[in-house]
Lab assay of single mutants.
Amino acid sequence: TTVEVQGVEYRFDNPEEAEKFAKKMAKSLNLRVELHGNKWRVE
């Protein structure tokens, strides 16, 4: 599972970890998070 934060990609073996990371990043950067296939995008 991939998390893309403002163009930078982070890879996770565990989808739940990816989701937690994406939501945490979105909250700290005041952005929103969307799931596209198996990629979380924070923008």
Rank of each mutant, 00 (worst) to 15 (best):
E17D: 12
A22P: 00
G7M: 04
V33W: 07
V5Y: 08
E9D: 07
T1L: 11
P15G: 08
M25W: 06
S28T: 11
T2P: 04
E19F: 09
K27V: 10
K27C: 15
E17V: 07
A22E: 01
V33Y: 13
E4M: 11
T2G: 05
A18C: 09
K24F: 14
Q6S: 09
E43L: 14
L35N: 08
W40C: 07
V8H: 09
N14K: 08
G7Q: 03
W40Q: 04
H36M: 10
E17C: 15
R41F: 15
E16G: 10
T2S: 10
E9W: 05
V42P: 05
F12P: 00
T1E: 05
A18K: 00
M25G: 01
K23A: 06
P15M: 10
S28P: 02
W40F: 06
M25K: 04
K23G: 04
E16C: 15
E9N: 07
L29M: 07
N30Y: 04
M25L: 11
K27P: 01
L29K: 05
S28C: 15
L35S: 05
Q6V: 10
Y10H: 06
E16I: 12
V42T: 05
S28G: 06
V8P: 00
E43T: 14
R11F: 14
P15H: 06
S28V: 13
K39L: 08
A26N: 02
V33M: 12
V33A: 15
N30H: 10
G37D: 13
V33K: 02
R41A: 07
V42S: 04
P15Q: 08
Y10T: 04
H36G: 04
E17G: 04
E34G: 07
N38E: 08
S28W: 12
A26S: 05
N38C: 15
Y10N: 02
E19D: 04
L35W: 13
A26Y: 01
A18E: 00
A26H: 01
R11E: 11
K20T: 10
V42R: 00
V8M: 10
N38W: 03
E4N: 08
P15A: 12
E43A: 14
S28E: 15
L31M: 13
V42D: 05
T2L: 14
A22F: 02
H36D: 13
A26F: 02
G7N: 05
F21Q: 01
R32E: 09
K39I: 13
V33R: 02
E34H: 13
R32N: 12
P15C: 15
K23Q: 09
V3F: 02
V5A: 04
E16Q: 11
H36L: 11
D13Q: 10
P15T: 06
G37M: 05
E17I: 07
K39A: 08
E4L: 13
V5N: 02
K24L: 12
L31S: 07
F21V: 02
N14F: 08
K24T: 12
E16D: 13
D13K: 09
E9M: 09
K39Y: 07
K20R: 13
L35T: 05
N38R: 05
E19Q: 06
K23T: 07
G37Y: 04
G37T: 03
V8N: 06
R11D: 07
G37E: 10
Q6I: 10
E34K: 09
E16H: 12
N38K: 06
E16Y: 11
G7H: 05
D13R: 08
R41C: 15
T2W: 14
L31A: 14
N38A: 06
K24E: 14
W40R: 03
V8L: 09
V8F: 09
H36P: 01
M25Q: 05
T2F: 14
V5S: 03
N14I: 08
L31H: 06
V8E: 07
K24C: 15
T1K: 06
G37W: 02
E43I: 15
V42N: 02
N30L: 05
E34L: 07
R41S: 11
N38S: 07
L29V: 03
V42I: 07
S28N: 11
E9P: 06
Q6D: 08
T2V: 14
K20G: 08
K39P: 00
H36E: 10
E17H: 08
P15S: 09
N30Q: 07
F12C: 14
V42H: 02
D13G: 09
L35M: 09
L35Q: 11
E17W: 05
E34C: 15
G7E: 03
E16V: 11
T1I: 12
K27W: 06
E16W: 11
N14M: 07
K23S: 06
A26I: 01
F12L: 02
L31G: 14
A18M: 01
N30S: 05
A22V: 03
E19P: 00
A18G: 05
E17S: 09
V3P: 00
A18T: 00
A22Q: 01
E17F: 05
Y10Q: 02
G37H: 05
E19M: 08
A26R: 01
T1P: 11
F21K: 00
L29I: 02
E43M: 14
E16L: 12
F12R: 00
L29S: 03
F12D: 00
A18S: 02
V3R: 00
E17T: 08
E9R: 08
V5W: 06
Y10F: 11
D13H: 09
N14T: 11
R32T: 13
V42K: 01
M25P: 00
R41V: 15
K24S: 13
M25I: 11
E4K: 05
G7S: 04
E17K: 06
R41M: 14
L29G: 05
V5L: 12
A22N: 00
E43F: 15
V33E: 05
H36R: 10
A18L: 01
E19W: 09
K39M: 08
K20H: 11
N14V: 07
R11Q: 12
E19R: 07
T1M: 13
K20L: 13
G7C: 15
T1F: 15
P15F: 10
V42G: 03
G37R: 03
G37I: 03
V42W: 02
R41L: 15
G7T: 02
W40H: 03
F12E: 00
D13C: 15
